[in-house]
Write a protein that binds this DNA or RNA. Structure first.
Length: 884
RNA sequence: GCCCGGAUGGUGAAAUCGGCAGACACAGCGGACUUAAAAUCCGCAGACCUUAACCGGUCGUGGGGGUUCAAGUCCCCCUCCGGGCACCA
């Protein structure tokens, strides 16, 4: 078999028949030989043809009989300009999608727009253009750029998240979640970005700063907000990572850290002198609940440490002005530290409250301190301090002269110096009836004991917090809730009355809640929607009385949490998507994007998938089977940015060298997972390479056209050599596509093949090659280039007289027989040093190779007069003679 | 501090399973073609030593040690760069 496409029309030619008169001769077209590769002409020509065929890249039906392949690149924010990072991302995805098509898969390769978000509002302020208009213009511009790049998207499934036919389903999901108690409202401390004028999710705060404003310190505000209960899925999100072996380890580790599961125990310390019942006005201070992962060390606790914001600390402070001032100072230190880049480095400070807590295990009275290193938002905001077995506690105890008591000892051998934290091979001491137990065992037994006796319990805490989705911005999905001014009970049975107005979920029939179009965007605080009376004022769907709409909009990460499901059924007006369609395409076979979304989009969308599964909409547990995170595009050693002035515009590159050369360079310059240094000379080099191929193909186009693709029965030496390289190249590239994706080496292999053909031109022109072999080589060369340079391949395909669509032509299959070498080169080493390279028949066995190596003159000279101690022969690889 | 990457010629990189280090390009140099240039084609090209030249030799994948007939690749220690997490109890 020559190519899969040749099946069924095999003709056997012989050398004799080739020489007969009616057989094609090698033809060289002198005018075409002069032809120059001109992407500026070729690319728009094919773009126009492809644009005219909306079905060209459309996926086939579920009954196509082909295996499905869902190839997805992360959808962009429509800034109005593609940057090189996009070009790289899409070049990778497009090569893969085209390859999978050629391999006979039913491919879904969609694109869309993450179109809500703050930049549209900022642009509106600056240019006085409504966000909607600005966004839609940008989408049009970027779509044009994508078409110019020749990307194989099925635009019939395009998703634009800022349009009501999409965002209405955000609202629908919100109502579903509200009903299932996965969406709820609560007052809490939230992150506020003064620049964005909105609340941010924890995931959007980086080192205490806004993810969009690196210099802006995020403030903490007490606000009532909507949350999605992602923590309900914390364990599943964590455990699921184990099975995601098609995801980069780096991303899995980041998510593991982010979820931050920690097993431990809660233990109540009674506060001496507090009963907790006598004063209703005062916070209940009768006990302090600490969280610890090392309850086995509790006999070594020599103080209890509270966060400066702990309720008990506040209560104590309210009765003691001096203490209050000190605690306030600790809080300030902590806040400052959290805003700085190295939070871990600040010096520990504390203040003794003068009060005591009682250790429920041994009844010991220990002092209650407030420490600047205790965080209110982790665990319970209170810890037991065990200086002997915790480095931080040790440092603190040394500083303030608190006692250090060893309660853990090594099972055998020397006792390690304090503090030591090991739990392996360590046992309890100084812990009464628990003495001698191993740490791990003691942790379980002591937590169970605390539970039995009502002063504690085993527990699990997470770093992951519920996802705050309310945003005090205009350009987002309106949250489909109203506040009834009659303040009646919520219509849901069992749901408590919420004050001041009843919180009422809109019925599905009221969707979509449309975002008003004309609105004055200002920089003032507060939700812009609150200033639009016709939006704000509505009626309660339960009692018909006056009601106010929720004026916050949803975080844009809601939009991107499920967009890829919508692609499978983008026009559905009755549901977000039809289950059977999603179930056919999901999970995504390959998801490709930047690593910057590792704990934002990629954790939210995993959560959303699990919610949809529990709603019975889909059957998959995870959205994407495999994830690939490409490296950054850099220039002069730094990430491209306007401020550094090192931005290379894709439009420029395409104008100068064409889309094919630009795309191919993005794949050639580095393996896709590594950072890529953009060098324009490299793009020029690829352009020259395509020119070389162009001349080659046009020169032999006539030959190729006439010769067709029959099977050769006998071959010249030139035929054999060229076909061997061709089939080795096919095998190599097919392998690269199967997982490693080192397209840089795929393209290098094509270049080598082309170099070899060019070097053989003299022989070919002297008719030392058969037209049939030339035709096979030219034809397959074009097919190999099709995933990387689609415009170019289409043009070349047409020039050799093919009428079909090149990237729907079956991918060539490597013929092992043709690829096999007759003779191979074997390096011969003496004591590990290369001495010579010998040629032996490919099928030579160990003995034959050994004989050939020992017979070699250079080797003989080197071995002369010495003792050959050992001969190592690795067939097909090398020979090493050990001599003394 | 912890976790994940990475370090190979002037540059981007290759070596997929422990087997010829530097494929393929970029930049450079030399030549052919040309009145000339561009384009194209051919060739050279890790460093050092030796030689008139060929030939030949030594060193060489961030540093040090180890395993092996054989190490860019495996093991131990260290340095630097990038990224993530971080008083998380």
């Amino acid at each position: 078999m020559v190519t899969a496409g040749a099946q069924g029309r095999e003709v056997l030619w012989t050398r004799d028949s080739l020489q007969s008169k009616d057989m094609p001769e090698i033809e060289i077209n002198e005018t075409e030989r002069q032809a120059r590769y001109n992407p500026a002409e070729i690319e728009p020509k094919w773009q126009a043809r492809w644009d005219a065929d909306p079905k060209l890249y459309a996926a086939e039906g579920h009954d196509s009989g082909k295996p499905k392949f869902y190839c997805l690149e992360m959808l962009p924010y429509p800034s109005g300009q593609l940057h090189m990072g996009h070009v790289r991302n899409y070049s990778i995805g497009d090569a893969l999608a085209r390859f999978m098509w050629m391999r006979g898969h039913n491919v879904l390769h969609p694109m869309g727009w993450d179109a809500f978000g703050l930049p549209a509002e900022n642009a509106a302020l600056k240019n006085n253009t409504p966000p909607r208009e600005w966004t839609l213009q940008n989408i049009a511009a970027m779509k044009k750029q994508m078409r110019r790049m020749g990307l194989s998207y099925d635009w019939s499934t395009e998703v634009t998240t800022c349009l009501p036919d999409y965002y209405r389903w955000n609202q629908w999901f919100f109502l579903q979640m509200y009903e299932k108690d996965l969406a709820y409202r609560k007052k809490s401390k939230v992150n506020w970005c003064p620049d964005c004028q909105t609340v941010l999710a924890n995931e959007q705060v980086v080192n205490g700063r806004c993810w969009r404003h690196e210099d802006t310190i995020v403030e903490q505000r007490d606000l009532t907000q909507w949350f999605l209960r992602i923590t309900k899925y914390a364990d599943e999100l964590l455990d699921g990572l184990e099975k995601l072996d098609g995801w980069p380890e780096k991303v899995r580790t980041m998510q593991r850290n982010w979820i931050g599961r920690s097993e431990g125990a809660l233990v109540n310390f009674a506060v001496a002198g507090e009963t907790g019942t006598e004063n209703k006005e005062r916070e209940d201070c009768s006990k302090i609940t600490v969280f610890t992962t090392r309850v086995d060390t509790i006999y070594g606790a020599t103080s209890v440490q509270l966060a400066p914001e702990h309720a008990v600390a506040k209560a104590f402070a309210s009765e003691d002005a001096e203490l209050a001032a000190k605690i306030e100072a600790l809080l300030e230190e902590q806040k400052k530290a959290r805003e700085s880049d190295d939070f871990g480095a600040i010096e520990k400070h504390g203040v003794n409250t003068g009060r005591f807590a009682i250790n429920p295990f041994n009844g010991e009275r220990v002092p209650i301190w407030v420490g600047n290193y205790i965080l209110a938002d982790y665990g319970t905001g209170a810890i037991m301090s065990v200086p002997a077995h915790d480095e931080r506690d040790f440092e603190f105890a040394q500083k303030y002269g608190l006692p250090v008591r060893r309660v853990i000892a090594a099972e055998q051998g020397d006792q390690p110096e304090l503090p030591f934290t090991a739990e392996e091979n360590a046992v309890l001491i100084n812990s009464r009836e628990w003495d001698g137990l191993r740490c791990i065992e003691a942790q379980q037994k002591m937590a169970a004991f605390a539970k039995q006796n009502g002063f504690g319990e085993p527990t699990v805490t997470y770093r992951l917090k519920d996802w705050g989705v309310s945003r005090q911005r205009y350009w987002g999905t309106p949250i489909p809730m109203v506040y009834c001014e009659n303040g009646h009970d919520s219509p849901e049975p069992g749901k408590p009355r919420v004050e001041p107005g009843g919180v009422v979920a809109l019925p599905e029939s009221a969707l979509p809640v449309l975002l008003p179009d004309s609105i004055a965007i200002t920089q003032e605080g507060g939700s812009p929607l609150g200033k639009v009376p016709e939006f704000l004022h509505t009626t309660c769907p339960v009692c018909g009385g006056p009601a106010r709409r929720e004026t916050d909009t949803m975080d844009t990460f809601v939009d991107s949490s499920w967009y890829f499901y919508r692609y499978t059924d983008a026009k559905d007006e009755a549901a977000p998507f039809a289950s059977d369609k999603a179930n056919y395409w999901f999970p995504i076979d390959q998801y490709i994007g930047g690593v910057e979304h590792a704990i934002l989009h990629l954790i939210y969308s995993r959560f959303w998938t699990k919610v949809m599964r529990d709603l019975g909409m889909i059957t998959n547990d995870e959205p994407a089977e495999r994830l690939f995170t490409q490296g950054m595009v850099i220039k002069d050693g730094a990430k491209m940015s306007k401020s550094k002035g090192n931005v290379v515009s894709p439009d420029d590159m395409i104008a100068r060298y064409g889309a094919d050369a630009t795309r191919m360079y993005a794949l050639f310059a580095a393996p896709p997972d590594r950072d890529l240094e953009w060098q324009e000379e490299g793009v020029a080099g690829i352009s020259r390479f395509l020119g070389r191929v162009y001349r080659l193909v046009t020169k032999y186009a006539e030959t190729t056209r006439k010769a067709g693709i029959p099977r050769l029965a006998s071959r010249t030496i030139t035929d054999q050599a060229l076909l061997r390289t061709l089939h080795q190249t096919i095998a190599k590239i097919t392998l690269d596509f199967s997982g490693r994706w080192h397209f840089n080496t795929s393209i290098a292999a094509i270049m080598s093949l082309v170099n070899e053909i060019v070097a053989a031109e003299t022989a070919i022109d002297a008719e030392q090659a058969s037209p049939v072999a030339v035709a096979e080589i030219i034809r397959n060369l074009i097919l190999l280039l099709a995933p990387f340079a689609p415009f170019f391949a289409a043009e070349m395909w047409e020039q050799i007289g093919e009428e079909g669509v090149v990237f729907r032509t079956p991918w060539p299959v490597a013929d092992e027989e043709l690829a096999r070498e007759n003779e191979i080169e074997i390096p011969v080493q003496v004591n590990g040093k290369l001495v010579n390279v010998i040629r032996v028949p490919a099928e030579s066995d160990e003995a034959a190779i050994k004989r050939a190596a020992l017979a070699d003159e250079k080797v003989k000279a080197r071995v002369e007069g010495k003792n050959v101690v050992k001969v190592i022969v690795v067939p097909g690889k090398l020979v090493n003679l050990v001599v003394k």
